[in-house]
Design a protein around this nucleic acid. Structure first.
Lengths: 152, 152
DNA sequence: TTAAGTGCAAATATTTTGCTGTCAC
DNA sequence: GTGACAGCAAAATATTTGCACTTAA
């Protein structure tokens, strides 16, 4: 029986521990915030949510933990086309890469998986002899709703 | 007869003037730096090169001009997988979108055009009803040379 | 016990803004 | 002549670093 898409919480924590890293109170909190986020969060939002759970979490620890997770390939960093200043957003690395589409009018972020994208990555690896570690495909434009609204 | 790939310099300048924008001494210099760049430059590098041509160019003017060019869709902003801090890099918007590949070992940036990428964009527009204005596909990994070197 | 991790303060890096004076058209 | 633009200073934003203290293993 295949596992459901939404894995049990604590996966990030298990991954870090299996790599021999120390599981501190602060890390546990930050990991749970990242893991249960319903949208893409930036460092300040992660800090705020972490402090709701435990006021003793420092901004620097958030940055250091995000950097750790990124180094270990457990989260991906997004820019979302720089629509909200120069913030970076984070999400748990998905099982299958997806595309981020940012609506330049309403700001909505949508995600899209595509076989063509998977094939494109294969083509890059073959044709360029390039071993892919991480990809980021971001698209800026107008979503269905805003397209219609503009036309009206 | 089709135009050659490498257009005559001054194209950016012509584009801005045709949009009714003022062509100042500073803008002319910054545009020529961006236009003749042989690699992707960030704001500070553009400033430095501009000042070699005319010491009377301010950093703020570089930022304002880059922002103007971006708003008009004449240049694209790249992050190059944040390999060199949080700088942004700029390039004239190409006639055909390409992929940027950043080697995590040697730092080399390569570019790649692909029909699959063009088809993927078409798929996004159709399947998501999303009107694409700008795309950015960046890939981090290991280039052919560094792959070999690591294996050795 | 002890090396890894945290917090605090300060530094660094990048980009933006307010305002006054200048110049392209 | 006039409104768009440039320069300067200062602010805002985002992230990193040094160092002493704390804690997980």
């Amino acid at each position: 029986m295949p596992l459901p898409q939404t894995e049990a919480p604590g996966r990030l924590q298990a991954e870090l521990m299996s790599r021999g890293l120390r599981m501190t109170r602060q890390r546990r909190i930050i990991l749970s915030v990242v893991e249960t986020a319903k949208q893409h969060l930036d460092a300040s939002q992660i800090l705020r949510k972490a402090r709701k759970l435990d006021s003793q979490v420092d901004r620097v620890t958030v940055y250091r933990t995000l950097s750790l997770l990124k180094r270990h390939g457990l989260i991906d960093e997004l820019d979302l086309m720089h629509m909200q200043g120069e913030k970076h957003f984070y999400e748990r690395r998905p099982q299958r890469d997806h595309i981020h589409m940012a609506c330049l009018r309403c700001g909505k972020i949508s995600e899209f998986e595509s076989n063509l994208f998977d094939r494109l990555k294969g083509q890059i690896q073959r044709d360029c002899q390039f071993h892919i570690v991480v990809t980021r495909l971001e698209v800026g434009g107008y979503c269905a709703q805003c397209r219609t609204a503009s036309a009206a």
